[in-house]
Nucleic acid binder design. Structure first.
Length: 433
RNA sequence: GGUGAGGUUCCCGAGUGGCCAAAGGGAUCAGACUGUAAAUCUGACGCGCGAGCUUCGGUGGUUCGAAUCCACCCCUCACCA
């Protein structure tokens, strides 16, 4: 850790989009062990990469001696945040939100140190203090402090109000009040004086700051993180299969590792600053070394290693590296029988192969069912381009109806394994039943 | 409740009786080139190995033939009440 202040470090990493008065915040952080919070609404049964930056941000604050509160939005998740969404969202049932909240709680626990010690984090759920508030109290005690004029003026909902072809329900419109109430409550209850969130949360955060001042008479702060963008303009955090999740059951450590390994050069140094705890100086050194070397940069490997370790631990990282080494070294013969069993345990996609089915199933069906492509058409395309390799042997279109031979016992490794490669990066292990 | 504008394949967006599985763009996937990068070029892109099958908010109807015409219904938006 360098002798920079926290804010200076965050700034150097490009992790600050906007803050309330920077001098005041700097001073506040210098003089106190600050209690801060960040909310995570349960919109799925797992957090995904979009949540990682704020999550790590809480950790960064904790490392500087501050106390984070991770807030699970059991209440706000029932309403739906309209901020910069161009469409009204459908509501999830109470049971589902409840269940998702529990999932998030379990995940968040892995990133931050919880407990009673100095700086020990707190895990909260806004459902606990929101659910019991009755409508009249809500309207009189909280709603009275908001003017609709101001609420409408917020950029985060303006487009929904102005834009033709959409609208906003009263329910979603009320979201900002609910979130503001959280801040006010946490300030009163835990002395929380800083809220952080994505840049889309600025409107909600300032709403909470105003409410806290009005109700508690306290001067509190806000800080937002930049939206993570990719240099080519496509959305960050998506792969072919959709979002990259933090839950290892939804995105295996191997897939997670691969995601980072494939980071474009143009983004990788920025991402190192966002997603790892390596110091800015160290990252700059890597960048410099990469620039001087010809060929493949080191940065992606470092990034993949660091982030995978953060999210999946040493074991997850080891598994991911084992598979990567086995599949991309180009040398299948180095793998022993046990290694194949381990591959599937480590999270390489795999499935069983029923010999009886081979005769009637074309490869297109077989491989698309295994998840190597979304449809048989795509498999066909790959076959035509010689992009399907089974245990090192190319399969072409003419083999399509020839599964019994392609997956013949004589071609199996150790009598039962078939490693199928589609394209450069997709692998699947078939095990003869 | 009234008036007007709309609902097209993942997204945007053409298409107003056959030449439409439906232009164009984006996203995505694969090939070449590379470094499991970018850029570029090529191909695919509703489903099906195939014959073929199922789409254009919904349901009926007109027609040899409908995404395109008609009726009713559902939904969205805007303005008015």
């Amino acid at each position: 850790m360098s002798d920079m202040t926290l804010l200076q470090d965050l700034k150097a990493r490009g992790l600050i989009a906007q803050t309330t008065s920077e001098e005041e915040l700097e001073q506040h952080l210098a003089e106190n062990s600050v209690t801060l919070y960040c909310g995570f609404d349960p919109t799925a049964d797992s957090l995904h990469l979009g949540h990682l930056v704020p999550l790590l941000m809480l950790k960064r604050f904790q490392e500087y001696g501050h106390r984070p509160i991770a807030l699970v939005g059991g209440a706000t998740g029932m309403i739906g945040d309209p901020s910069f969404k161009d469409q009204e969202r459908s509501l999830n049932s109470a049971e589902v939100v409840q269940q998702w909240s529990d999932c998030l709680k379990a995940q968040i626990g892995r990133f931050i140190e919880f407990g009673d010690q100095e700086g020990g984090a707190i895990l909260a759920n806004n459902y606990d203090w929101t659910a019991s508030v009755d409508v009249l109290s809500f309207l009189r005690d909280i709603g009275k402090h908001f003017t609709v004029n101001k609420m409408i003026a917020k950029e985060s909902v303006r487009q929904r109000i102005e834009r033709e072809g959409s609208g906003i329900s009263f329910t979603e419109f009320t979201y900002q009040i609910l979130q503001s109430y959280d801040y006010q409550f946490l300030n009163k209850e835990y002395g929380c004086t800083l809220q952080i969130g994505g840049s889309d949360q600025w409107g909600n955060i300032t709403g909470g700051i105003d409410l806290t001042r009005r109700v508690n008479g306290a001067h509190v702060h806000g800080l937002t993180l930049p939206l993570i963008t990719k240099s080519d303009g496509t959305k960050f955090g998506k792969t072919e299969g959709g979002a990259v999740w933090l839950d290892e059951k939804k995105t295996s450590p191997y897939a997670f590792y691969q995601f980072w390994l494939q980071t474009p050069d143009a983004d990788v140094y920025r991402f190192l600053k966002f997603f790892t705890f390596l110091s800015v100086a160290e990252i700059d050194a890597i960048e410099k070394a990469d620039a001087e070397r010809q060929g493949r940069p080191e940065a992606q490997a470092v990034l993949a290693r660091e982030v995978t370790r953060l999210v999946h631990g040493e074991e997850g990282l080891a598994a991911a590296e084992r598979i990567t080494e086995a599949l991309f070294s180009g040398d299948l013969s180095s793998l022993g029988e046990n290694d194949y069993a381990q591959l599937s345990l480590d999270g390489l996609p795999s499935s069983e192969l029923a010999a009886a089915e081979l005769a009637e199933k074309p490869l297109t069906t077989l491989l698309s069912e295994a998840g190597l492509a979304a449809s048989g058409k795509q498999i066909k395309d790959a076959l035509q381009r010689k992009a399907v390799i089974v245990n090192g042997v190319e399969a072409g279109v003419e083999d399509n109806m020839n599964a019994p031979e392609v997956f013949g016992a004589d071609r199996a490794l150790f009598g039962r394994y078939f490693l199928v490669k589609l394209g450069k990066k997709k692998h699947h292990l078939f095990v003869a039943a």
